[in-house]
């Protein structure tokens, strides 16, 4: 019944000095999920990020200084909470996340999941992390899987979708320093 369409979705793009790529990211997202609102959280950028984002038609919320990715994303969640969005999707401003996959995350939320993470490892991709990074990803994946009692493949991915319930929780408590764990 077009459930996804009837629900309000906010795409949150945390961006710090992403001029030259943020506009392309916005365009791509609009192509794949035209019904979603796009919010660029300008994390104290000193370049033309905010301007380019605004010219691309996205809403821009500017933080007065560079607060870090964690606080920037949380600001987006705060926005989603205040404006009554049902779903919030986090997409990085540098274009590393394929917008074509957003609908997959959203349909997971539509099936009653509260947090859907776009993993780099469930399917074969070209992504090859460095050895130390790979080790870190495995450790956190193992720990988080152990704690929640469910296999989480990629806990450190910054490509994720949250239901309203998750958004409300994340506006209350969200790590500042290592938000991707």
């Amino acid at each position: 019944m077009g459930e996804i369409l009837s629900k309000k979705t906010l795409i949150i793009i945390p961006a710090y000095n992403e001029e030259g790529s943020v506009a392309r990211v916005i365009e791509n997202i609009r192509r794949y999920v035209p019904e979603a609102d796009i919010l660029v959280v300008n994390d104290g950028s000193r370049d033309r990020t905010a301007r380019e984002a605004r010219e691309s038609g996205a809403m821009v919320m500017t933080l007065p200084y560079n607060m870090g990715i964690g606080s920037a994303v949380q600001s987006g969640f705060l926005f989603a909470k205040e404006k009554g969005y049902h779903f919030a999707v986090q997409v990085d401003g540098d274009g590393q996340h394929p917008p074509s996959e957003i609908t997959k995350l959203l349909s997971a939320l539509d099936n009653g999941v509260d947090l859907a993470i776009g993993s780099r490892f469930v399917q074969q991709t070209e992504y090859r992390p460095t050895l130390t990074r790979s080790l870190g990803i495995k450790i956190f994946s193992f720990l988080v899987s152990l704690i929640v009692g469910k296999k989480i493949y990629d806990t450190t991915s910054g490509f994720r979708a949250a239901s309203r319930k998750a958004v409300l929780l994340l506006t209350e408590t969200y790590p500042h320093d290592y938000p991707e764990v």
Binding site: M59, V60, L63, P64, M67, S71, S75, F79, E82
Partner: peptide, 17 residues
Amino acid sequence: LFDRNRRLTQEVAWLRF
């Protein structure tokens, strides 16, 4: 203090928007 400062900054950004 850090937490409160962060929340304040976010609220300011929201209000400015």
